[in-house]
Simulated scan of single mutants.
Amino acid sequence: MDWDKLRVFHAVAEAGSFTHAGETLNLSQSAVSRQISQLEDSLKVALFHRHARGLILTEQGETLYRTAREVFAKLAAAEASLSEGKELPRGPLKITTPVAFGSTWLASRIGRFLELYPEITVNLIIDDGELDLGMRQADVAIRLSPPRQPDLIQRHIKNIKLHLYAAPSYLKNAGVPQTAEELQDHRLVLFGDTPHPPFPNVNWLRELATGGNRRVHMNTFSVNNYYAILRAVQGGVGIAAIPDYLAQEDSSLVRVMPDVEGPQVPAYFVYPEELRHSKRITVLRDFLIQEVAKTQF
């Protein structure tokens, strides 16, 4: 199989169109299309369904794409490993984290990491979904649950604590609850329905307010993202259970019923087995552990 044509096929499958793949490869749309047609001719199968809105992989195309993606992922790992110097860690480092953690806590601290290791190029992907580390969609992940994928190394770095918070403007109008029962008279900001909640019992606040009785009517607002919950609370929508590290981004927020604490959520540093000896992974892990130790979680 022609390697150059396979590289073009992989780019087209990733981009979903000849035009976008051409931009990535610095080739014309016609050149990309011609390479794919020649590859299909040599294999005697169609790899894409052509549509006006773009390209869709055929069954045979999906089979080839899975193999090509694995090959290019392993090549990227090899390239990164070879590029690491003997003295200083160097090369690309792709990190994925949940949206709230990555866009606030980590993004505000990553500058110090880059100052310590200027030869490392960081790509931070904030996504509440779990990217496939085995397929090198990212090199390392911060996750709030143990990894389900095989062949991943995990390191517990901290238990995240949650407390109840509200904006002064909301409490001025609605009053400050003193007991769990009084929460029933307030609007609660909850984590919305999702197939994969960030941790079990994510809406423990509702259970606290109702005593677990689902028949109790509550005035609630739901959104399935913690950063959005923070913004809603800042806007005076109501009371929410927010991770302490996130609430610290706004010193004006008031901790409500300060003795009440939610379930502690373990945070994990996760990376593939094949990167066990990567200097980039090691220095990032050590940096995060030091930064976490300085933060009230």
Rank of each mutant, 00 (worst) to 15 (best):
W105C: 08
D250H: 05
E23T: 09
E273H: 03
P118V: 12
I110T: 07
N173Y: 01
L55H: 09
I125D: 14
L205K: 04
E14N: 00
A76Q: 13
Q154H: 12
E273I: 04
E40V: 05
K94Y: 09
G85V: 06
T97C: 15
E130C: 06
R50Y: 05
L190N: 00
T220E: 12
K44W: 04
D127V: 04
L288Q: 07
N123L: 15
D41A: 12
S81A: 12
E182C: 00
E249P: 02
Q29H: 11
R231H: 08
G235A: 09
G102L: 00
Y226C: 01
L190T: 09
E273V: 10
Y165V: 07
R231S: 08
L284R: 03
R50N: 02
A240H: 03
R206D: 10
R280H: 00
S252K: 10
V216N: 09
A68R: 00
Q149S: 15
A180I: 05
V256P: 03
L275G: 08
E249K: 04
I281C: 02
Q184G: 12
D151A: 14
E62S: 00
I153P: 00
R255F: 00
F221A: 15
F221P: 06
L144C: 10
A241T: 14
Q264C: 12
F18R: 10
E273M: 08
V260L: 11
Q137T: 01
K74R: 15
E40G: 05
R53P: 06
P195Q: 11
A80N: 06
L39Y: 02
S103A: 12
G175C: 03
Y65H: 06
G111K: 14
S251A: 14
R148K: 14
A78Q: 11
